[in-house]
Design a protein around this nucleic acid. Structure first.
Length: 554
DNA sequence: AACTGAAGAGTTGTGGCGCCGGTGCGCCA
């Protein structure tokens, strides 16, 4: 029985293939809209089919309802099968290449007989692409560098998918077996992508573990490795490995299974004594050193910091007092200002920045100057309604190609907080990009640079800067750089965030939430900050409201 | 394909950038 995610994926696939085929574009929009809605739907589509309520979903009419019903009933979709006979599904792999869209794919297919990424690369190498009308050497080079970027993809899972998947299984194992279960491996270290889901269970009952995994419905191909490790394939697309351990060595095994490999090897060399511990804290205590947070267990150098009690006091989710970059339904967000504010209050925040897109980002229904002033009235109304939370009048202002901003200074000055964002021209040269961002930071109204590189992990490389210059100017102008907490972005990256902080640059960790639920993505940004060794004092939105307002008046 | 607001038909997803080719088109946020 296909779940909502699978149904959404099939609708998207249908839309992409129809677009390559050259169908009515508005039909595709209809399919894609429903796909996006399904991904955020709380209720299983299957249940709605049973109760004949599908058309309650916005955007679902008779046509799409029939398709969804067919997929739920038969696990097949005739129309998609037929479409694939005309347009091979392998063509879709070419759409991953930045700068290659459906029109190009259709031409590669019809004019050169190319059906997948491998053939596209071969043809580009042989100079076949430039022979097509409308293409040239430059396009061909762009395609090749795009493919080179794609070839670096690891096939690893986003932490944004891996962590919740691991948590769900850990909960099931813990409930079922009544024992402690911990997430280990790269997920525990909050790496941006993860290759395996690793769990450690304080029970040597491997059979019960295997049975629970099987019953979860998320794990297949379950096998034993020796008698203490159960492995399987998780539905999210990675291997899952569960270690069954005696409770008296649960801590030491968790330590080993957390890694990194390099860190653990160095650690074991330095502390050669046989160590068994029921908890990690006991392990560290027995060695007489300060516990090392999992996020710092990459390079062995951190061991020395532990020995000398010089570890940073890492930031935690609970240190965050507000979110400074998010969206409401005034632009492309899905929640009203009141809904976002209520959710923020529920999370214990003191303040929240309503930073909808500026008018220049038209596809996101960017807010024009006129609507910005109307929005201000709404923000003031909600501020009165929820006195415990302070809403800041803000904007995510588009940066133009020349480094100028989408709103003139006399509009910016009316805002409490200005978040500046580059969304285009990110593949320009390092020099040009650095010059552009420096110009933005020198605008006295700009407070925060959002997702500075614009990368999308494993999908889009993002811009490159001369970071030393960026940090220098950020420090000089008092501009904060964002760690965007969305797991698809995590931008700044951990190592860049570390360098920024070392240079004295103030950071901010924001979710860029487009709906109420995404406010909870904060923990991924905190994960990046912790990996970067960052303390609460280095992060703007750990400050109390009064201190934040002081800073904004700087 | 779906929605609106009419009883059939119009509208929905905008604007800038980059490349190619000499004015236009595809891609992307």
């Amino acid at each position: 029985m296909p779940d909502n995610k699978v149904l959404a994926d099939r609708l998207k696939m249908f839309a992409d293939l129809s677009e390559i085929k050259g169908e009515n574009p508005f039909r595709l929009i209809a399919y894609r809209r429903v796909a996006e809605t399904l991904e955020e739907l709380d209720e299983p589509v299957e249940q709605m089919v049973r109760e004949d309520r599908l058309t309650e979903v916005p955007g679902v009419g008779p046509g799409i309802a029939a398709s969804l019903k067919e997929m739920v009933d038969t696990d097949h979709w005739e129309a998609l099968d037929e479409l694939q006979d005309e347009v091979p599904a392998t063509l879709l792999t070419m759409l991953d290449v930045p700068g290659v869209g459906t029109k190009s794919v259709a031409r590669f297919y019809h004019e050169l007989g190319i059906t997948d990424l491998v053939q596209l690369e071969a043809c580009a190498r042989q100079g076949e692409i430039r022979k097509l009308k409308g293409f040239g050497a430059k396009q061909e080079a762009r395609i090749l560098s795009g493919i080179a970027f794609l070839n670096q993809r690891t096939g690893r899972l986003s932490i944004g998918t891996g962590l919740p998947a691991a948590e769900a299984l850990a909960r099931e194992l813990s409930t079922r077996l009544g024992v402690a279960v911990a997430i280990a491996g790269s997920i525990r270290r909050m790496c941006e992508t993860v290759g395996n889901l690793d769990l450690v269970v304080a029970s040597d009952n491997a059979e019960a573990i295997a049975a629970t995994l099987a019953e979860s419905g998320r794990v297949t191909e379950i096998e034993y490795v020796e008698t203490t490790v159960v492995t399987g394939k998780h539905a999210a697309g990675v291997e899952i490995r569960v270690l069954a351990t005696n409770p008296d060595e649960y801590g030491s095994e968790l330590f080993r299974w957390t890694g990194s490999r390099e860190f653990v090897a160095a650690f074991e060399r330095q502390f050669a004594a046989e160590s068994r511990a029921a908890s990690e804290d006991q392990l560290f205590e027995a060695l007489g050193i300060v516990p090392i947070p999992p996020e710092l267990r990459e390079s062995p150098e951190v061991i020395e910091l532990s020995r000398t009690n010089a570890l940073p006091h890492l930031i935690e989710v609970s240190d965050i007092r507000g979110d400074l970059h998010l969206h409401s339904d005034w632009s492309d967000g899905h929640g009203t200002i009141l809904e976002m504010a209520t959710a923020a209050r529920e999370r214990g925040y003191e303040y929240l920045s309503i930073s909808d897109h500026s008018g220049g980002l038209a596809i996101a229904h960017g807010v024009t100057v006129e609507r910005l002033r109307q929005q201000r009235a709404e923000i003031e109304r909600v501020n009165e309604e929820i006195p415990e939370l302070r809403l800041l009048k803000a904007s995510e202002v588009e940066v133009h190609l020349d480094g100028s901003l989408d709103f003139p200074d006399d509009v910016l000055v009316e805002l409490d907080l200005v978040v500046a964002s580059l969304h285009s021209g990110l593949n320009r040269s390092t020099e040009e990009l650095t010059k552009r961002i420096v110009k933005v930071m020198r605008n006295p109204h700009v407070d925060i640079i959002a997702h500075p590189t614009g990368r999308i992990i494993e999908r889009r490389p993002g811009g490159s800067y001369d970071w030393d210059t960026v940090f220098k100017v950020a420090l000089e102008t008092g501009t904060a750089l964002e760690i965007n907490a969305n797991p698809a972005r995590l931008d700044l990256r951990d190592d860049v965030a570390r360098d920024a902080r070392r240079a004295g640059v103030l950071l901010t960790i924001d979710t860029d939430a487009h709906d109420v639920r995404s406010l909870d993505l904060m923990r991924y940004g905190i994960g990046v900050a912790r990996r970067a060794g960052i303390e609460p004092t280095g992060v703007l939105n750990t400050r109390p409201l009064a201190a934040l307002l002081d800073w904004l008046r700087r």
